[in-house]
Simulated scan of single mutants.
Amino acid sequence: MNRRSFLKTMGITSVAAGGFGTAYAMRRNPYYQGPVSDHFDGLRFFNPGGVEPPGIIDLARWQVTSSASPWPEAWPQKTTSVLPVERVSGDDLRATMVGHATILIQVGGVNILTDPVYSRRTSPVSFAGPQRVNEPGVRFEELPPIDLVLVTHSHYDHLDLATLERLHANHDPLVVTPLGNDTIIRSAIPAMRVHAQDWGDVTEWGPVAIHCEPAHHWSARSLWDRRMALWASFVVETPAGNIYHVGDTGFHSGINYRAAREKHGGFRLANLPIGAYEPRWFMQSQHQNPEEAVQGMMLCGARNAIGHHWGSFQLTDEAVEQPRQDLHAALSRAAISQERFRALLPGDAWEVPVDRLEDSLGQSMLFR
C-alpha cells in the first residue's frame, strides 16, 4: 500500500494524524487533566494566537490534488553508520544524525537522544504507512549509554513506543516530554522514567537543565485525541552552551524564535526542522520550510544549526533532496555559510565549533 492509499484508508499519519477528529465526541482528555491556561482550554491544547491544523476537507483536497514527487526506495544509495564516542567533556559538543528528528547530542558528559525513532515505519500499524528509505546512522546496538531522551510531541515520527521500550530495556534513560505524552508512554511502558513538563517548566539533570518552550504545532495518535497532549520545543542549558531542539513547528511569524532568544540569550546549536513542508497551502501553519528555518536561526540567535526532519520518511510532497537544496538556496540569499547550518544525513557527525567572544576585560568567554 502506497503513502496516498494509506492516508485515504486510515486517515492517520505523523503529518495528518487526527485530521478527521473534528467531531468532538470525546469530552474527557485521556492523557491530561489540569487547570485551564493560555494554551489549554480544559480539554485540548492550542497555540495562543495561532492557527489550528487542517481538518478533513483540507486533507481530502490535498490527497485529490497532490502531485507528490516520487522517492527512491533507498536514499542515499549507501548510508553511513558511525560508532559514536562514549562521552564528551569540557567545551566539546558533538551531534550525530541518526535519522529524521533523531539526533544523538553529546555534551558535558551527558548523552541525549531526541525524538528517537528506530522503527521501520512511522505509523500506528506495522504493515503500512511511511517507511524509512535509509538505515539509522547509529545502529541501536552501538548507541553509547543514553541518559536523557527528549520527546517533543505525540506524532508517530517523534514518539515511537517500540523504540522507547528498547531504550528502557537497554539504557533506562529519563524521558522528558510535554504534558500528556507521559501518559501515552507509561500506558505502554509502565516502568519507564518519564517527566512531563508544561511550557516554561525546567528540569535539572546532572550538569544540564531542560527547559520546555512553545512550538507552533499540534498532536494526535488516533482519530479522537486531536490536541489532547501538549507539543513543545526544548532548550538544553549546558556548561558548553545552550542547545535549542525544535521537533516540528510552523514559523508563526517568528514569535517563538524571538521569545527563545529573549529568554535564553542565543544558542551554540539549534536543531531546526526543514522538511515536510509541501504543499505550502496545507503545511505552512504547522511545518516551516527551509527559508523560514534560516529566518528562525537568525531570530533565535543560533551560531550553528542542524537541519533535520528530512530525507528519511516521505511524509509530504517534496522530493527527497529538495529540503537540502532549498536550505542551501536560502542560506545563500541570507549570506550564511553552509558550514553553519548543515542538513545532516544519517551517520553524519558534527563537532560543533566553540565560538569565543572577548569581554570588556579581554577575557575569553564561551558563547552560549
Rank of each mutant, 00 (worst) to 15 (best):
R132T: 09
F140E: 11
L161H: 08
E142Y: 11
G108P: 00
T122F: 03
D92E: 15
T122E: 04
A68V: 05
S126G: 12
R87A: 14
D160V: 05
V151Y: 09
A60F: 08
D115K: 05
Y156F: 15
L113V: 07
D147K: 02
G137F: 02
R94E: 13
L93D: 08
G109D: 01
L113Q: 01
L143M: 15
L150G: 08
R120H: 09
Q63D: 15
Q131R: 12
G99W: 02
S126M: 09
R121P: 04
D92P: 00
R139V: 09
I112R: 05
L150Y: 05
A68P: 04
M97K: 02
R139Q: 14
T163I: 08
Q131D: 02
S69C: 14
P72H: 05
D147E: 15
P72G: 01
P130I: 04
V125F: 13
D147S: 11
A60L: 11
R87I: 12
H158I: 14
S119L: 07
V82W: 00
V117Q: 01
P76I: 03
L161T: 06
E141I: 12
P136W: 03
R139I: 00
P124T: 01
T80W: 08
L83F: 10
L93F: 04
S89W: 12
V151T: 10
L104E: 04
D58R: 02
T163K: 08
T80D: 09
G108Q: 06
V98Y: 06
R120N: 09
D147N: 15
F127I: 13
V138P: 07
V82P: 02
P72K: 03
E73T: 06
T79K: 03
P144K: 08
P136L: 09
R94W: 10
V149S: 01
F140Q: 13
